[in-house]
Design a protein around this nucleic acid. Structure first.
Length: 367
DNA sequence: AAGGACCTCAACCGCACTCCT
DNA sequence: CAGGAGTGCGGTTGAGGTCCT
């Protein structure tokens, strides 16, 4: 099912766009919408292929694009999502409002990747390079397991997100449908609710033991995420990350109508999940080999927690930062990075995230 | 000041996927 | 089911800018 190159026609222009071309494209889309990209260039009077026009529009001309430097929170969101999703830039971009996948990809390749590498963290695995080496000559089996579990969880999260998006669509076309959807309300049957956001729920339990009154030894393959981060993922899985929501503080705004609450996942209980749900479905519990090692992943490293045992709770960073640092005014990012204070920089990021998550109410899903 | 090295990022390439006929 | 059209996506390229010697 091969496709012919879109620009093989002689006479089509390639390379950088001129302001005139931009203007033509903008004017046309403004007036008619883009419609069929293939037909657009001729209609708009452009000597470009449709693909080129689409790219120019989606990556540059679209009015809802935010350009310029990435904020700290955007940076850490990218890193966390990359740890979870890998090079799936479009998926990452959906969680960074107004940023394009191309921009995120470029930023990763030119900035974040190098920065992580500089810190001795493998940008691919998000683990300290020394860890990667030791696992290579040591427990290769467990590292393979971990990799598989991470892939499994990643795929699972993606499926969750898709489920919610589909439910969203159904709800729009048929509001009553949400009452019947597994992700919907307590009206859903327990069995239907089972395959919902259990992974994230498990993170919740793990990362906010005080609120949930329990503490599990369960360690997610991607347990580099803390509670605040898991809330971002929950929002992501719900297919909606509001503009004011970041990993540092996902809070429902007044303008949002709560429709799906996590505590309304009928039939789901933490015990159920941790115990494998009684139906043997707890693949990641069945292969717990090496779970703890994930704590030694990149977040632990970033937090200056080389032994992953900082304060006995390496994934939360609570109390791991010196007091004077906690009370400091926002630290100048460039100064920290350029001054070789990378750990402090990242500490600042994660500290701000975790502190903002401490006073939150139970997460709410929005449709 | 010159020029080579390095960096950044817009744009391109080509594969993969979905939809439609 | 096959195949074409349209589009999404991730990897790569290369022009232009900046830094370094």
């Amino acid at each position: 099912m091969g496709r012919s190159p879109c620009c093989e026609k002689v006479g089509l222009k390639k390379g950088p766009w001129t302001p005139e071309e931009d203007q033509k494209l903008l004017a046309y889309i403004d007036k008619h919408g883009h419609g069929s990209w293939r037909a657009l260039p001729a209609k708009a009077g452009l000597q470009r292929c449709g693909k080129s026009c689409r790219l120019r529009w989606t990556n540059y001309l679209r009015p809802d694009i935010k350009r310029g430097e990435f904020s700290m929170q955007e940076e850490q969101t990218i890193i966390q999502l990359h740890a979870l999703l890998g090079n799936r830039w479009s998926a990452i971009a959906t969680h960074l409002p107004k940023r394009t996948d191309n921009e995120i990809k470029n930023y990763w390749n030119t900035h974040l990747k190098k920065r992580l590498a500089k810190m001795g963290i493998d940008p691919c695995t998000h683990k300290a390079k020394s860890d990667a080496l030791s696992s290579a000559d040591g427990d290769s089996r467990s590292s393979t397991n971990l990799s598989h579990m991470a892939q499994w969880e990643s795929a699972r999260l993606e499926a969750e997100a898709r489920l919610v998006r589909e439910s969203k669509l159904r709800a729009v076309s048929n509001p009553a449908a949400i009452l019947q959807h597994p992700m919907g309300t307590a009206a859903a049957s327990p069995s239907a609710a089972k395959p919902s956001l259990d992974v994230i729920r498990a993170w919740l339990v793990k990362h906010q033991p005080a609120e949930h009154g329990e503490r599990s030894d369960l360690e997610s393959p991607t347990s580099t995420l803390n509670f605040a981060e898991s809330r971002l993922l929950m929002a992501a899985a719900a297919g909606r990350v509001p503009g004011n929501a970041t990993a540092g503080g996902y809070q429902g705004g007044e303008n949002m109508e709560p429709e799906i609450r996590i505590d309304s996942f009928a039939g789901f209980s933490t015990e159920h999940f941790l115990a494998g749900g009684g139906d043997g479905e707890a693949p990641w519990l069945a292969e717990t080999c090496g779970w703890g090692q994930f704590g030694a992943g990149f977040t632990g490293m970033l937090l200056g927690d080389k032994n992953s045992g900082c304060c006995g709770d390496s994934y939360t960073n609570n109390g791991c930062v010196p007091e004077e640092e906690e009370e400091e005014e926002p630290v100048d990012k460039e100064e920290l990075v350029e001054g070789g204070e990378n750990k402090s920089y990242w500490n600042t990021i994660f500290n701000s995230i975790n502190s903002s998550s401490s006073s939150t109410s139970p997460p709410v899903f929005y449709n």
